[in-house]
Lab assay of single mutants.
Amino acid sequence: MPVRRGHVAPQNTFLDTIIRKFEGQSRKFIIANARVENCAVIYCNDGFCELCGYSRAEVMQRPCTCDFLHGPRTQRRAAAQIAQALLGAEERKVEIAFYRKDGSCFLCLVDVVPVKNEDGAVIMFILNFEVVMEKDMVGSPAHDTNHRGPPTSWLAPGRAKTFRLKLPALLALTARESSVRSGGAGGAGAPGAVVVDVDLTPAAPSSESLALDEVTAMDNHVAGLGPAEERRALVGPGSPPRSAPGQLPSPRAHSLNPDASGSSCSLARTRSRESCASVRRASSADDIEAMRAGVLPPPPRHASTGAMHPLRSGLLNSTSDSDLVRYRTISKIPQITLNFVDLKGDPFLASPTSDREIIAPKIKERTHNVTEKVTQVLSLGADVLPEYKLQAPRIHRWTILHYSPFKAVWDWLILLLVIYTAVFTPYSAAFLLKETEEGPPATECGYACQPLAVVDLIVDIMFIVDILINFRTTYVNANEEVVSHPGRIAVHYFKGWFLIDMVAAIPFDLLI
């Protein structure tokens, strides 16, 4: 008679799926529990143990900040960024110097990925580790590398530091407007667009060049630039800015003055950032001319202004700041037409079709709590990747769950009947059967004279019903998954307890 339990259901295979997918890609990662103190490590794979030199037993239950890997060259700011990422709910990448158990130093890129439950609360953290440099290539500990984003994938490793954006290309926007319009339909740009040429040739750093990471940081200074100062900065030398009595002219307006920039070969870094931020506020060169004239017309309804409409929906549905990093990277690809469009465009503009998908598509409701890094690593669709929660398995109709209350009560009843059979069957065979043979035949009273025979008949009927119930009862397979398919249940029961239950259900007393 089957006594099969499996009270692990309803099970959740999400954690096993993450481990299996990460292991298949030869990654070095740990999984931490966000619900406990210090976000203790609950799993670390073999790749991480080989990377740091510690065994799994030495890593388990330690804080996922990996303070046991810190050393003299470990930056405090990087460690603080990892700790801050564990307090938030967004994906974050941090470069930090770690030390192995043998004392060797290596520069590592740590990717902190939160995993949320159905309520939107962070319950786990996945920390992925990628070695960037070994100890002989690690720089000085005073050099802070965590304020910069990861290198873009479309640049060669040897040319990542030679990417320079020439400031004269930004200063000569109005001069290039006529050349853009003359391109017409034969050019790649839309009317009114501004073409910015980027020099990728390796050259020595000069005062006129600005690194790509500095251009990325310009967006942080746009908020500090007032509207009046932006307007004066875009007017140009024809209309000098008016300053109040006793007030000095704005240095932001002076930063885009061609006369002032041409007199000296070098520009201050602050002026460069502010000038680029001011130019980015204009949607095209037409807006710059309109600002000089004193009238700013409404933005025209053409394809170039609607190019950012799908980007707005993608940004609203993005799951991490990696989408913004990807957008900034692609927006700086050289030799393309940049349409400086305000994100607050007309909502009635139709979304044009684009061959290049900048932001990841909208994630469906079932995966809105899973970050983009987890979705990318697992390579699963929205119909396959579940949320991290207890999910009731989908069972067929008329199927009994093996952990249901009805099955528990039924098993206790069958257990009592088995005990009765084990006690009274030998007793009936030894004593009652002998008395029946010696006594007179009682054929007239039937079952009324033999109450134990009636009980034995009921017990046999219950055993037959138990066999039928076992054909529709779920079970737990070797992978700790609840199986509810009727065919698989029948095959599993035939290979197991079916023969024993059938022999126990045969009414031998009635056959004798």
Rank of each mutant, 00 (worst) to 15 (best):
S207E: 08
P361Q: 12
L170Y: 08
A253C: 14
E91D: 12
V279D: 14
S243W: 04
V113Q: 07
H147D: 05
I19V: 08
L267R: 06
A121C: 10
S261V: 13
S104L: 08
A211C: 07
R77M: 14
E90R: 13
G103C: 12
S322C: 07
R269N: 11
G187L: 06
H221M: 15
P237I: 08
I363W: 10
S263W: 15
E214V: 06
A85L: 01
K116H: 14
A172H: 06
K116G: 07
G120Y: 06
M60N: 03
L212S: 05
P141N: 14
R292V: 07
L171D: 13
G381L: 04
R328Y: 04
P168V: 01
S322R: 09
E365H: 08
V325W: 10
G158V: 15
R159C: 08
M124I: 06
K93E: 13
G186C: 05
F340L: 15
E230K: 05
P386K: 03
A172T: 07
D355F: 07
N117P: 07
G246W: 05
R73E: 14
V94L: 01
C105E: 14
I31N: 01
M218Q: 13
P10E: 13
T371P: 04
N117H: 09
N33Y: 03
E58R: 01
S284R: 03
M124Y: 10
S354N: 15
R73V: 09
D287Y: 05
S250G: 10
A193K: 05
V279M: 09
P205L: 06
V131R: 07
L315P: 12
S206I: 12
R326W: 05
N38G: 13
A156K: 13
L296I: 13
S283F: 07
A203S: 06
P157E: 06
S351Q: 15
R62N: 05
A204K: 15
P10T: 12
A260P: 05
T270R: 14
V180S: 08
A260T: 12
A85Y: 01
P361F: 05
E214P: 06
V384M: 11
D259P: 05
R292I: 12
A57N: 13
L173I: 03
L127C: 06
F348K: 14
S272V: 05
F14A: 11
H309R: 09
N45D: 01
L171S: 07
E50H: 06
T17W: 13
T305H: 12
P297G: 11
P141R: 11
E134S: 11
H7W: 11
T367S: 11
M137F: 15
A156W: 15
C108Q: 01
G345I: 04
P150H: 09
L267F: 09
N369R: 08
Q61E: 14
R159P: 06
L15Y: 07
Q61K: 07
V8A: 14
P72V: 05
A211F: 13
T65Y: 08
I18N: 01
R312Y: 11
N369P: 07
N33H: 07
N146S: 15
G226L: 10
L212Q: 05
A172I: 01
S178C: 06
D136V: 06
Y327E: 12
R326G: 12
A85I: 01
V194M: 01
S331Y: 03
P361W: 01
C64K: 01
E177F: 05
C49D: 01
G226T: 07
R164T: 06
C276G: 09
A169T: 12
N45H: 01
V41C: 03
G120A: 12
V222T: 06
Y327P: 14
R76T: 08
S320I: 14
A268D: 03
G53Y: 01
V113G: 07
D346F: 14
H147N: 14
E365P: 14
S266E: 14
M308D: 05
R92P: 01
S239R: 07
L380F: 07
I42L: 07
S272N: 07
A277W: 11
S140C: 07
R356P: 12
G186K: 04
A185F: 06
S318W: 15
P300E: 13
K364H: 15
P63W: 01
G246Q: 05
A223E: 09
A193N: 15
M137I: 07
G6C: 11
E130H: 07
L378I: 10
V132P: 15
S140L: 10
R252A: 05
R5F: 07
G314V: 07
N339G: 12
L69C: 01
I358A: 07
F163S: 14
